[in-house]
Simulated assay, not measured.
Amino acid sequence: MSSAQRKDDHVRLAMEQQHAHSGRNQFDEVSFVHHALAGIDRPDVSLATTFAGISWQAPLYINAMTGGSLKTGAINRDLATAARETGVAIASGSMHAYFKDPSCADTFRVLRTENPNGFVLANVNATASVDNARRAIDLIEANALQIHINTAQETPMPEGDRSFGSWAAQIEKIAAGVDVPVIVKEVGNGLSRQTILALPNLGVKVADVSGRGGTDFARIENGRRELGDYAFLHGWGQSAPACLLDAQDVGFPLLASGGVRNPLDVARALALGASAVGSSGGFLRTLIDGDVSALIAQISTWLDQIAALQTMLGARTPADLTRCDLLIHGELRDFCEDRGIDTRRFAQRSSSIDALSEMTGSTR
């Protein structure tokens, strides 16, 4: 099967998942404690976020999706247009297809030609050579590089990698050999605390936890198998909220993606410590079912509603959401208990006199 056909299959199977999804995931097991006097004035709210020396005007980005075929090139054109019109960052899909077939370069390059002044992230896998990583960055004039790690996708992939032992060393080589910040991301199975703690020593600047709950690439690759005999890997890994809880106090910049369905999920992830939050499948569904104007409207609405949530919660910046009280429920709470994470600390973050005084604008 050609690389272009595989890319088209990924989009088709991802859309089948989107249309069949039950709608619930572990973001529903995180809720804000409502403080009725916490609200602030909307003009005092900023969506700007800064992490690892990177500054974005909003804590939202269009995460890695596709590229490598005529159909996916058209999708990338529309995604880039939406990023340009809304001011959010955008990541390329895996650029491995370009390394194998340079004739598909324009299906990735369009991310920059349609979005000349935006923040664009290139995307390679952990087996890419340093030279190919540089080629990917140069092709789209990328501001940063995502390296995706995806053992749970590769395993059922008919033509997938089966040698994972060299990945960490290769990530270190890439990070040392490129001139832009390197972000390591999963593809929907999550990054554990242990994995995140290993990244700074490899020269990585940021981690995107990319948890389960959204597009399931193990399911997609199993759907491409004649026998579908890896169904036991469906749903593998940790959710984005679980990853963020697991990574509390690691002292390393985190992004969150995987199962982000609405602005409330964005606020939840920010409150759990993410510097910015990405969405892929939901934005792709809007684009496929509608058009680029529908996607622009959706992202614009999300940005407005994220600011509205910050206003109601008393968070002048996205980072201030980490001071809001959260309740952790259900299986997510069970996960925390098993991993030794005290969920009570999240429920009592604004309980000090100083925090309450600032929340209400009063003085002692």
Score class of each variant (00 low, 15 high):
125 N>L: 11
105 A>L: 04
116 P>E: 02
154 E>K: 02
146 Q>D: 12
139 L>S: 04
160 G>Q: 01
120 V>C: 06
143 N>C: 11
144 A>W: 00
158 P>K: 11
134 R>E: 04
117 N>G: 15
124 V>T: 11
100 K>P: 07
161 D>V: 08
144 A>P: 00
104 C>Q: 05
148 H>A: 09
132 N>F: 13
145 L>M: 12
130 V>M: 13
154 E>R: 04
160 G>S: 04
115 N>W: 03
153 Q>C: 00
157 M>P: 01
131 D>F: 11
152 A>S: 14
141 E>A: 15
134 R>H: 01
120 V>Q: 03
136 A>E: 08
154 E>V: 05
132 N>K: 12
107 T>K: 01
155 T>L: 15
138 D>P: 04
103 S>Y: 05
153 Q>R: 00
128 A>M: 05
114 E>C: 15
100 K>D: 14
160 G>N: 08
161 D>F: 06
108 F>Q: 02
115 N>Y: 01
131 D>V: 14
129 S>N: 09
150 N>Q: 12
143 N>V: 09
130 V>D: 13
111 L>H: 00
149 I>D: 09
160 G>Y: 05
133 A>Q: 03
157 M>K: 05
122 A>W: 03
143 N>R: 15
148 H>Y: 07
107 T>Y: 02
142 A>N: 06
125 N>W: 12
136 A>M: 09
134 R>I: 06
161 D>C: 11
147 I>P: 09
145 L>E: 10
101 D>Q: 08
107 T>C: 02
100 K>Q: 15
145 L>R: 08
157 M>H: 08
103 S>W: 02
148 H>I: 08
101 D>V: 12
120 V>W: 01
152 A>Q: 09
118 G>Y: 04
151 T>M: 15
161 D>G: 12
125 N>V: 09
120 V>L: 01
160 G>E: 10
102 P>Q: 04
146 Q>E: 14
125 N>P: 09
118 G>S: 00
137 I>D: 05
